Simulated scan of single mutants.
Amino acid sequence: MYTLDELKEITHSCRRCRLCSGRNNVVFGQGNHEANIMFIGEGPGREEDLQGLTFVGAAGQLLTKAIEGIGFKREEVYIANIVKCRPPNNRNPQEDEMQACIPYLRWQVKLIKPKIIVCLGSIAAKNIIDKNLRITRQRGQWVEKKGVKILPTFHPAALLRDDGKKRPFWEDFKEVKRVYEELIAKAD
C-alpha cells in the first residue's frame, strides 16, 4: 500500500491520458491526510494548474468560505479532484480521462479514510455515486457507500454563474456539519 506522498509522486510522472501534455502542474490534492471530511471536484482550472493546488481560483475562494462557515479550516479537510490535470480551456473531463485518473482518487480515499465525502458538482457525483445522477434533482441527498456518507452538491463555480444556487449550496454545507457532529457524537 502506498502512502499519500508516494501516490503523489506517481501522479507527477503520470502519462495515462492526453491531459498530461498540456499541464503545468499535477494537482494531486491537499489537506489533512486523516481528514474526516473530503471534498471532491471535477478537475483543476487555470489557477490550480499554475499553482499546483486545489481550488485556489474564484470557486476555491468560495469553497474556502463555505468550509470556514461551518467551522472548519481548509487544513482540517482534504480537497481533491476526479482528474489531476487541467482539461484544455476548462472543459469538462472526458470519460477516458476520468477513467485513467480515478484510480488515484480511489487510493486517496482509501488512505485518508474520510467519514464524509462531499461531491462538488455533477461530474464528481456521477463518478462517485451514480453515473445517472442529476445534480439539480439529487443534490443534498445523502448516499452511503462502504460506510462513508456521501453528499452531492453544486460545484462552487456554478454559484458564481447562478445566485439561485447559493442558498441550496449553503444548506448542504450546514447538513455536512450536522452529520459530522452526529458521527463524532456516536464515536464518543
Score class of each variant (00 low, 15 high):
123 I>E: 01
16 R>I: 05
50 L>I: 13
12 H>W: 11
164 G>C: 03
5 D>S: 11
50 L>Q: 06
4 L>T: 10
8 K>Q: 13
187 A>L: 12
72 F>V: 00
101 C>I: 05
21 S>E: 12
47 E>I: 11
63 L>N: 00
186 K>W: 15
2 Y>L: 12
32 N>I: 05
97 E>V: 02
48 E>G: 09
92 N>K: 12
162 D>F: 14
39 F>G: 07
58 A>V: 05
154 F>G: 00
112 I>R: 01
168 P>K: 15
56 V>M: 02
105 L>K: 10
183 L>P: 10
89 N>D: 08
81 N>P: 06
89 N>R: 14
15 R>L: 09
78 Y>N: 04
128 I>C: 07
120 L>V: 13
69 G>H: 10
162 D>L: 05
83 V>G: 03
12 H>C: 06
51 Q>F: 13
121 G>P: 00
184 I>G: 03
96 D>Q: 09
167 R>T: 07
79 I>W: 15
91 R>D: 04
44 P>I: 01
43 G>F: 08
54 T>V: 09
159 L>C: 09
72 F>E: 00
60 G>N: 03
134 R>K: 15
164 G>Q: 08
36 N>P: 02
172 D>M: 15
8 K>M: 10
73 K>G: 07
58 A>M: 12
104 Y>D: 03
160 L>H: 03
108 Q>Y: 09
64 T>Y: 04
126 K>T: 12
137 R>N: 10
32 N>T: 03
17 C>A: 02
139 R>K: 09
102 I>K: 11
22 G>W: 08
49 D>H: 10
133 L>H: 14
110 K>M: 13
81 N>D: 15
151 L>D: 07
6 E>H: 07
